[in-house]
Nucleic acid binder design. Structure first.
Lengths: 236, 236
DNA sequence: CGGAGTTTGTTCTCTCGTTCACAAGCTCCT
DNA sequence: AGGAGCTTGTGAACGAGAGAACAAACTCCG
């Protein structure tokens, strides 16, 4: 949960369908969506909150409450229509339209991201790959050539890019971020291990591979200590 | 935030130094650690909560409260000794020892993870790379050869591996997870877009690239709607 | 040595999120 | 048509985390 200070500003509440959905719920909608897609592929047409919650790995009450923020798409005594619900979630998240993204920094991770099929299948189109190393420019990764970072403004403008992905080393992240913002990008997904500062209107989310491992290590260590203490007690 | 139902079970509270640190705090400790390392490299020896909070991108009150769970390592009127604090955080997370990890699924992402330098520098040693595709076995990625999935038990046992990383397609994730658990791994970092079910004593954390993008898309869409509504109002 | 100036550690309040529990509402069977 | 049996949607209780605010404790200067 690493994001900008969460929707303050414009609390104007224009338009009644501007109900406001908790951040925690938003973060789960994509999971429900995935579960629904999987059910749909298996030709399941109706699902109960209990079953869907199980598939998504959450509590069923939480699931129902989450869905209730979107509207009342279920039928009591029956459950939810898989395709109907799927459509409404996708619509709410904004996946009924396509989003153009650029990936900056085509190292190991950038490569992997460029080839990752999970983006395209969910309505994200990689508009360009950018790198600051002139020797890499022109090289092809999958279908796309690597462009020079200097072409950023033009690419963002012509492809209407709203989202930028940063996969550079930490040392370059802030500068790249600034350039993205200057070019007009207003959402950033940051894989570099660095804290980015951005203007108010820009959203940043961060994914940090080594932090996740460190959190696991903490729990792992606790398990080990716990076991050792147990042993000590049983010997005493 | 995708993890096991948070430390229930063995609430035995053996040993008094088993103070229990909130999950939210644990998730931030690695960030503080990184900021401290960076300060240390710049030869800064003392830092105030205000400065460190700024570097970590959090509120200073939150930072102080987080640190207070670990003990009282600061000095009023002065601040924190950078190296001293850094050591104590590293110790708390369990980074004073090395952790062996295995990576399963050497596709695009697995490749990138295998070569990612951020692991080694934080005390995580990649003990082996595994893939189920026999044609890939033997191939080298960086320093390591790809091993067959069947060698898992042996590798986990001989290298004392506690943490497994899953970078397979979603369809294989659960089976790989089961094999990891059977081999003795008790923490899993899952990059596959699938919900894993594991026994009580195993921790799972999930990183999902496309979910992060979807969350950004939602906010992006709201910005767009907000702007449109504003426009409508100003025209009325 | 004493007081001004800092900065931590902690208490208190408030907000946000989770979970329980149940009434409302649907279907199906008799 | 009416009742039994489900399943949703939501009110209310609970718990965790964030942030403000301040007393305690240190340094430094005169």
């Amino acid at each position: 949960m690493t994001t900008a200070p969460s929707r303050r500003g414009g609390r104007t509440r224009v338009g009644r369908f501007d109900r406001d959905i908790p951040d925690a719920t938003i973060a789960r909608l994509p999971i429900y969506l995935r579960a629904l897609t999987s059910l749909s592929e298996r030709e399941v047409s109706t699902v109960s909150s209990e079953e869907l919650a199980e598939a998504a790995g959450v509590n069923s009450a939480k699931l129902r409450k989450d869905l209730s923020y979107l509207g009342t798409y279920g039928t009591r005594g029956v459950g939810y229509d898989v395709d109907y619900l799927r459509y409404h979630i996708a619509r709410e998240i904004g996946l009924t339209q396509d989003w153009a993204v650029v990936i900056v920094g085509i190292g190991n991770l950038g490569h992997a991201l460029a080839k990752y099929s999970g983006f395209a299948s969910r309505g994200f189109r990689v508009a360009a790959l950018l790198d600051s190393d002139p020797r890499r420019v022109g090289e092809r990764v999958g279908d796309l050539p690597i462009s020079a970072l200097d072409d950023l403004d033009e690419i963002v403008a012509s492809s209407d890019v709203a989202i930028g992905v940063i996969a550079t080393p930490a040392s370059a992240a802030q500068e790249v971020c600034d350039r993205l913002v200057a070019a007009g990008v207003s959402s950033v997904l940051n894989f570099a291990p660095a804290v980015l500062s951005v203007p108010e209107h820009v959203d940043v989310r961060k994914v940090d591979l080594s932090i996740e491992l460190q959190i696991l290590a903490y729990h792992e260590q606790r398990k080990a200590i716990g076991a050792a203490e147990q042993l000590k007690v049983s010997l005493a």
